[in-house]
Amino acid sequence: MIQQIYPSPDHPFSYELNKDFHFAAAHSIPHEAAGKCQQVHGHTYFANVTIAGDELDESGFLVNFKTIKNLLHDRFDHKVLNEDERFPSESGNTFPTTEVVARVMYEIIQEYLDKTMNKPTCLQIYLRETPTSYVIYRPKTGRV
């Protein structure tokens, strides 16, 4: 992967970890405003996960890079996103748009981090759907 620089929020933590990965997935947006995107189609998504914290775990990691990849890449790579339980088709807030996929990725990561002893925080998910279109999701939870 080509090295990229992502916008990063200011934060008070000692450590900041960034994990890049890509995955291929298909989706459709079942809403008339989506135009052609109402049809099933695919993307090669590029993602960056930013995690920060002050304490390392017993192995010296803020969080293991492999864990992040396992949680997200293994779940979404070569899948139809609409079929994932996190994307029920009843509401526009859950259609697998890039915005919603980024939010769901954050939720999956943060749910895992909340169960760890050192409790790092996911600061943002950067998700590129096409070479010219991307979303950044940053929670407004006051975690920082």
Rank of each mutant, 00 (worst) to 15 (best):
G60I: 10
F61K: 04
F61H: 12
V63C: 11
V63K: 05
V63R: 07
V63G: 01
N64P: 00
N64F: 06
N64I: 00
F65A: 11
F65Q: 00
K66C: 05
T67E: 15
T67L: 10
I68Y: 01
I68R: 06
K69T: 13
K69N: 13
K69E: 14
K69V: 14
K69W: 05
N70H: 08
N70M: 09
L71Y: 04
L71F: 08
H73I: 03
D74V: 03
D74G: 15
R75Q: 09
R75F: 01
R75M: 06
D77A: 01
D77N: 15
H78Q: 11
K79M: 14
K79Y: 02
K79C: 08
V80L: 15
V80K: 00
L81E: 08
N82T: 04
D84F: 06
D84Q: 11
D84H: 13
E85V: 12
E85I: 09
E85F: 08
E85A: 15
R86E: 13
R86T: 06
R86K: 08
F87R: 07
F87M: 10
P88F: 10
S89F: 01
S89P: 03
S89T: 08
S89D: 13
E90H: 13
S91M: 07
G92P: 03
G92M: 14
N93W: 03
T94V: 10
T94Y: 11
F95T: 06
F95G: 02
F95W: 15
F95L: 15
P96V: 04
P96D: 11
P96S: 07
T97C: 10
T98F: 02
T98C: 14
T98I: 09
E99F: 06
E99W: 08
E99I: 06
E99V: 07
V100T: 14
V100F: 05
A102G: 09
A102H: 02
